[in-house]
Write a protein that binds this DNA or RNA. Structure first.
Lengths: 384, 384
DNA sequence: TCAAGATGCTAATGCGAATTATCAGCGGCA
DNA sequence: TGCCGCTGATAATTCGCATTAGCATCTTGA
């Protein structure tokens, strides 16, 4: 079944079938209503549908959004951390009438999937959503350089150009926790997380050579928010690394240094500390306050009602799709214009609440930070 | 970047570039080694990759597998019931070097997504995996009729022809539970599930008119296994519907009828019964045994260690992909042969353990039932 | 009555690759 | 010399659809 077949059936030309199919009714394209009806009838009766592949080849657009994840898409080990992002992405795609292409074919090299490889299939999609704790800088740079439309879920430092993203406002959310802690009387706070990289207000792009992998932006942002808030409040901020130490050792160190509240980069580490503390007969908000800086990335027991903030993961996914389609539309299509396909009419476009500042221009912003939801919880109280 | 560009750069024709790219070395296609090298160099230095779309148009194959779900793909309400299937599907696709296309663009009509609709995008993929408790018969029939390569995750009755599927062996798993119950002394067993449809050994295709929707195969299969096992053991099998009754009413009915063990079609209903029973001071294995016939489909408390069986969801997903690729390869491609694309070489094909009987022919089976894993649990004991 | 516009549709072309038929050059052999 | 066979590469075609220039035919208006 091709347009040619339909054309023969109805005694018109293939071009006419295409025009009718796409509901073209411009002034320079005229089809008699009865002809149109005849063709439509034939289309309906045969159940013909245009071959999306051929369509894409000719029209340069697909209504397919790619999704690339560095980790497996449906992971077993991350406690469904990625799941909410996908929910949001799916919602976004659905409301826009797009299909989602998961790049499961990307081969794994050096323990992670690679976007670019021989037989790269990126171009199958109109654009691409990137998911993962830390994205490869070089690949990111190449995407930017090639002008491939893409969006990262999660803020990313520039990579040879601004990287479009929809991220969570970790600095603000972390600062808010700090402020809450200070408000109830804490004066010695610890930031407990991976590594102990120097963190400045600016993205730390391998100025010092890229030998040591930088902390993922999501971590660096939290720490930055921590430092700023601590400085602003004039209290003591301590940095505690988690690697290579048992929860018990970590707890010892915290107590030894006089820390009264620990801000945990990773929820699961918070659980571990809490559990060790309990074993020692310590009581959690009383002897040591703990706050988690986000949802668990690794599976963690949920018996403790942590003081924390929640990452708006679902919304991030859905807004990422918004931004992406914006980018795609900005990219010149067939002749620098909007694609005309009738089926491609956007349905249910929402007014993506862009918070990144004023609506400075007609153009929608490509870098968005969303607020995190503060959770009261019961693990933060006045220090003894 | 097109093959044409590469061709100009190296002073050869587009055809030559294509031949080199695809590593063609047949006897009727000869390229001088040095020419080949020159072209390959150019390809590498420019980072050129063939446009998958154009490739598909010409070669008629994609390495894209479609995934269609009747419910939202990443649902919030099903307690991640579908998640393991997707994990398996992703694994399968990855090992085969295929991408996954989620048909999120399928519009919803009458409360469910439809496969067939104007502007159908099924053909984007080489084949399609179907996911969902109950698939639409008509759509299934149409898929069969059109010869579209597809596989259902979960057994399906014929629909105008055999439906390829990878399902769980519910009859056997349910029968095993019955046997375990009988072995410890139960004589009056209840099957508690939706509806109360007559169930025969054969698929009940609307002989009686399709007015009343048939039970989904997954339910019918369990019930069939139940009836058969009960009959074989010579004990009493009772049918209890769950709809329109509170767990309390259901419990009353079970006890009134002298049931000593309840086999719960749906895990969550088992939880509900157990909790009501406890509230009344009944003890669960002692006063009433309960077994769940599969993993929870709806979110359910997991505090009870149910006697049950587990659906091999992940494996089902991954085997479905296996079956699907088998079907796709069976379907004649360009000229009834195997596609030649160099990139399309299958990697990591496994010996899909087909249990559906002997290897009767070269052709791999398209209807597979996998064993469920029996879980001992603590909710089945001898009756008082 | 005739140019000027509408109207309705089609031929032709291109998208980027795969594939096939064909062609030019070159030894070797009779 | 002329024919054959072999090598290496290319022109041409195809896939199914979108798009545009343009060709008839039919109305108008003056």
């Amino acid at each position: 079944m091709t347009q040619q077949d339909i054309a023969r059936m109805t005694g018109v030309s293939q071009a006419t079938v295409s025009l009718v199919l796409n509901g073209r009714a411009d002034s320079d394209v005229r089809i008699a209503p009865e002809t149109r009806a005849r063709v439509l009838d034939a289309i309906r009766s045969t159940g013909y549908v245009a071959d999306p592949i051929a369509r894409r080849l000719a029209a340069r657009r697909n209504r397919i959004l790619g999704v690339f994840t560095y980790e497996p898409m449906f992971p077993a080990g991350t406690g469904d951390f990625y799941h909410p992002f996908l929910v949001g992405i799916e919602e976004g795609a659905e409301s826009l009438g797009c299909d989602l292409l998961l790049f499961t074919s990307a081969p794994v090299a050096d323990g992670r999937r690679r976007i670019f490889h021989e037989d790269n299939r990126l171009r199958l999609a109109d654009g691409c959503v990137l998911l993962g704790r830390s994205l490869d800088r070089d690949e990111l740079a190449r995407l930017v350089a090639e002008g491939q439309p893409f969006v990262s879920v999660g803020r990313r430092d520039d990579a040879g150009g601004p990287v479009p993203y929809v991220g969570a406002d970790y600095p603000a959310a972390t600062a808010a926790i700090v402020e809450r802690a200070v408000a109830v009387g804490h004066r010695t706070l610890a930031y407990v997380g991976q590594g102990d990289h120097p963190v400045g207000p600016a993205p730390q792009t391998g100025l010092d050579g890229q030998d040591r992998p930088a902390a993922p932006e999501s971590h660096a942002d939290r720490e930055r928010g921590f430092r700023a808030a601590v400085a602003a409040a004039g209290v003591t901020g301590i940095r505690e690394p988690v690697e290579d130490r048992s929860p018990a050792e970590l707890l010892d160190s915290l107590l030894a240094r006089g820390v009264t509240v620990a801000l945990m980069e990773e929820y699961a580490d918070g659980s571990a500390i809490a559990s060790v503390a309990r074993e020692r007969g310590l009581e959690i908000p009383r002897d040591l306050s703990i706050a988690a800086l986000g949802d668990p990335t690794r599976p963690a027991p949920s018996d403790v009602d942590f003081t924390m903030f929640r990452i708006p993961r679902r919304q991030m996914g859905w807004q990422a799709v918004e931004v992406l389609t914006g980018l795609i539309e900005g990219t010149p299509g067939p002749e620098g214009g909007e694609p005309r396909s009738a089926g491609a009419q956007r349905r249910g476009r929402s007014e993506a609440a862009a918070r990144d500042g004023s609506e400075r221009s007609r153009q929608s912003p490509t870098q968005i930070l969303l607020d995190c939801e503060q959770v009261e919880g019961t693990t933060l109280a006045a220090p003894r």
